[in-house]
Design a protein around this nucleic acid. Structure first.
Lengths: 246, 246
DNA sequence: CGTATCCTTGATTCGCTTCAACATTAGTGG
DNA sequence: CCACTAATGTTGAAGCGAATCAAGGATACG
């Protein structure tokens, strides 16, 4: 664990209307006019170093965050030390929604690499979304999407076997990299086998073995964190044919 | 604090200000004044018979629903026939939030017993929550709470063993019955072993065996769907001591 | 009162975990 | 730049928890 680094807030005013992540982020689908008003909303940017946390469970909730660069994981801790990764987030995605319900965060958000977020003060967001219909609607969609995503993960954890889970994970990552203009077939994972395992409800050894199996069968090429998908169709088939165990 | 009670024929027109579920439902925490405005929002009530669906995956999203009486399950289906129960909902809880993101529902909501819901047209909700700050805030809290709840389920599915899952489930049910003025220790489950299993990521036989085990050990008394919790402390201990397998 | 549904229990199988050893990569300081 | 060490990843062998298969019993329902 690195020593605590003071939070760096650079004075640069963020600007949604100028940002190239609009189609992935909160402003998606909003009109030019509404977009300009969004610039009032987004305050400062904040840089987070690898392994540092953006917020921790128990922290008072004040803002949500849009990832401008880098990536994060969120995890929940149990008293006994067990922890569970609840999600991996990439550029344009929103962090911190869990905090609204109790006004304090219920999970930890940790940077997987040196990252930067736009800070969106929640009080301002509520205020502005009372005036800007498009913003209100987009925000609701973002929350709803998170709920739907979580249901997908519950499905995965509750009814898929190890290799299906990993296949689903890889296809999901591929799809998200594609949406960001990267190759659908070749990408670099920012998380460890242990973190993937935690997210998928598996031990790291099981993740490693599943990777090896996929490689043997020519479905993917795996070199540590560098992944190349060689046969996406077969990966998809793994999910569709009922090979589940529950 | 008593306002004039409008005499509504047959309860066709719902009224949040008169409803005894306020502390559990969407209006929780809202002022008297704001509450009155809510009555504009909630349109008709709708009765759903046992085993009937309130909405199905793919249905166009138009409204969210507050459960006025009865209970529901939500489930997601995979192409191959596998399905996963994503939640059980009781009176005062909100159904349909999954529909906002794509404007069509992503799961099925099925009544576990003859039930009744208040229909809240979503367009109206957005409109009114631009005017009524308290409503906006409450709605956001409801969505956020759903996200936090889902993370809890992911934790359960990803890192607990069978008996821990069932213990968590029973304690959660107990807590929710208590909030509704019923006994914390004695209640009637509305769902089958198969549905509990699907929710907990277990087979129905495993659920049944875990129930039997709890009974043998004097933790609960089980007679089919009738549950009596005899030793809540031990159930809680089951969760806190790290007996997990992942 | 008969039938379908739901629940319980036992025996066996199987997939993932656990434990262990080793390989590889990344990070650090001389 | 290389030596050293910690962190991460891979692979094998054995054990265990839950799934599967199977049979019978209880309950609700028309």
């Amino acid at each position: 664990m690195k020593a605590a680094v003071p939070i760096t807030v650079n004075g640069l005013k963020a600007s949604c209307s100028q940002c190239n992540l609009v189609e992935l982020c909160l402003p998606f689908g909003m009109s030019e006019h509404d977009l300009d008003r969004l610039d009032e909303l987004v305050g400062a940017r904040r840089k987070i170093k690898r392994q540092q946390s953006l917020y921790r469970a128990g922290d008072t909730f004040e803002a949500i965050y849009a990832i401008r660069a880098g990536s994060f994981k969120t995890d929940v801790l149990l008293e006994d030390g067990r922890d569970q990764v609840t999600g991996f987030q990439m550029t344009g995605e929103i962090l911190g929604l869990d905090g609204i319900s109790t006004e304090s965060h219920s999970c930890n958000a940790i940077a997987l690499e040196d990252s930067e977020v736009c800070v969106i003060p929640y009080a301002k967001l509520e205020e502005l979304s009372r005036e800007v219909e498009g913003l209100q609607h987009q925000f609701h969609k973002v929350m709803s999407r998170e709920i739907v995503r979580d249901h997908g993960v519950m499905m995965l954890l509750g009814s898929m076997r190890a290799e299906e889970r990993l296949a689903a994970f890889l296809l999901n990552m591929s799809q998200r990299f594609t949406a960001r203009g990267f190759s659908p077939a070749e990408f670099h994972l920012r998380m460890t086998r242990d973190e993937i395992g935690s997210y998928l409800g598996l031990k790291l050894e099981t993740v490693s073995r599943a990777f090896s199996r996929f490689q043997e069968e020519g479905l993917v090429s795996v070199q540590q964190k560098h992944i190349r998908i060689l046969n996406a169709a077969s990966l998809k088939r793994l999910l569709q044919h009922q090979s589940g165990n529950r």
